[in-house]
Structures are given as C-alpha cells and as structure tokens.
Design a protein around this nucleic acid. Sequence first.
DNA 1: CTCGGAATTA
DNA 2: TAATTCCGAG
Length: 265
Amino acid sequence: MQCGCTSSVSPLSSPYWSRTVLFPDWAYKPAWSPGSRQVQLWHFLLELLGRGSGGAIGWGSEWGEFVIQDPETLARLWGERKGKPHMNYDKLSRALRYYYNKRILHKTKGKRFTYKFNFSKLILVNYPGFPTCHQLLPRVPLSFPPFSSETGSLLSRGAELPLDRALQPMAHPFFHPYCLPKPIPSARALQVHAPPHSAPPPPGAHLMRDLRLPLGATATVHDDFPSPAGGCPAKSTSGWDLRSFASGVKESETGNKCLGRRVDK
DNA sequence: CTCGGAATTA
DNA sequence: TAATTCCGAG
C-alpha cells in the first residue's frame, strides 16, 4: 500500500533504503547474521542498557554515554554470553577499544569506565526503516536485532530472512529521557556535501528531529568527533564511502592520548 | 585505568 | 571480521 515495494527482493542485495544513507558493511550485520557469528559486544551492551540490568552498566549523563558500574560483573556476563569463562574487564575493554577506530564507541575521557556510543552509526543500523523513506516501510522496523535470547532460532542461516530484525520492541535506549538530545552540534554538517550522483538527501532528517534522535545520524559521519581519521578515506567528492572506513580505517587517530585523569578515588 | 600492538581464535 | 588473550607503556 504505502509503498507497494516488493520487500521480498533480497536480503542483502536490496537495501534500497540503506542505499540512501550508505553505511559501512559491518553496520548491516544484524548481530546474528551469517556474517557475524555471534552477538557483538555493542549489541550486548545495548541490550543490557535497555533492560536496565542490575548495576553492571547504566546510562551516563550524556547522550549515548554509559558507565560500567561493575566491570567485573559485566565481564562475567559477557563471558557467559560468549562462552568465555575467563573473560575479564581487561579483555572486554580491549574489545571496546577496538570500537574506537570503528567509530562505534568513544571514550569519555576523565571518567572511569565511561564510554559513549556513536549513535550516528548505530541508529541507522538498528532502525533502518526509521527515518528513511516516509512510505517505504510498512510499520515494523522499530526494534533491535534479535536480542530475545540465545534461543537464537533466528539464525536461519540468514539466507531467507532479509528483514527479520523486528522481533520484540525492547526498551529503546535511544529514546530514554535521560538521554538529553543535544542541541544540534553542527547542523551545517547535515548538508555540507551533497552526494555524488542521484543520492537522495536525508529524507528522514526532519523526522528524526521530531523523534529526538541524534540529528547527525542521517548525513553526518562526524557528529562529535573532533577530527576523523588522520587519513579520511573517502570524503572528498564521492561523498562517503563508509565502506572504506569499516575495513580501511586502521590506526588513524592517535594524537589524542591525554588521559590518565583520575577523577576520583 | 587506559591505550594499542601483536598473535591467535572461531 | 570480531573479538580473545597477553602485555608493555603511559
């Protein structure tokens, strides 16, 4: 009706809507897809945050910021999930650090155990049908990846289930009250560079605004980041080849090593 | 604590 | 590819 779009096209080869925004490859992997074997750490964290689990982890004061209140417990939980009995915070944090370059996470300097999600990436990943085409998607796309549980029957070798990410609407960390929407960091960034060719503008930009979503999400790669990678892969004329980021981004930013700021303790 | 390199694993 | 493991350096 709304779109008449035969969504039965193909799982991985028909991200029309995705096409409009261009995410990196890794972003598409719904956690349990064939490509990615198991739950990814950030999925796990989001899950815990959404469930408001005990006191192992909780949201911070800023948008997307979270604090690991009990590192050891969190590590234990993560270890259980992954079947790694010897997991500890040291290792877990290493994994977290790998997210820096991938731009999934960010460290809140000066605050112990405090990190911050870079939602400008994740939002689009988890809410693909959200703000994109006003009428392209029916009305399902409001949920997370298969977080349900390891009942994981959802594996389904992913060959047949293109958009099965809609399972159960868990608590949406993104819409939480304590996540104060920032007053538009750099709005101009939204339209700085027009896509190369036939690239549609952020269709849901305004929509997102209404929904208090991270504004930069739609069209900005650099929402809060001071300076991207030392050698920004593709940001010249061809717009964003985020794909390049995902795999190409390596040890880039390394100029910011000014921590060691024990605040308390 | 936090940061990443390096080797290894699934 | 996404960690896991080990570890020296700051």
